[in-house]
Amino acid sequence: MPQTAPNGAQDSRAAAYERNLYQVAQGGRYFTWYGCGSCHGRSAKGPLNLGDRVWVHGGALDQVYGFIAERHPGATAGYAARIPAEQLWQITAYVRNLPRLTPEKRRRQDLDQVGEPQGSNWTGPVR
């Protein structure tokens, strides 16, 4: 289980997350739970849309991870303080997989998970 951020675009730990659909799907659930979907949901437009293959802050593994963890404006100085490293790996894998998901598929997965906590209505523990 990784405790640290990727050490570059070609980190050897990436395959275990990016090429494993279970890990990608787990990332999707965290994406919802941490409230990412409230801005980056499937109807997001422009730079907020993560499924359009346009990466404003770079689309490489370390760039996506690094932006969420260190520089994302949604949390003071990024999400690294709030989200454990492995979950960040999973969320990164999910986000980088989004362009491969057709709109119907993404909508269908969201439909199944509509009962899951969505950021603001999370009732579990908060770090």
């Binding site: 659909l21 279970y22 799907a25 969201d110 439909l111 199944d112 998970q113």
Partner: peptide, 12 residues
């Protein structure tokens, strides 16, 4: 049973 076996929870 779905939803456990549905697209949202049974990837792959």
């Amino acid at each position: 049973y779905p939803p456990l076996s549905g697209p949202g929870y049974a990837p792959g």
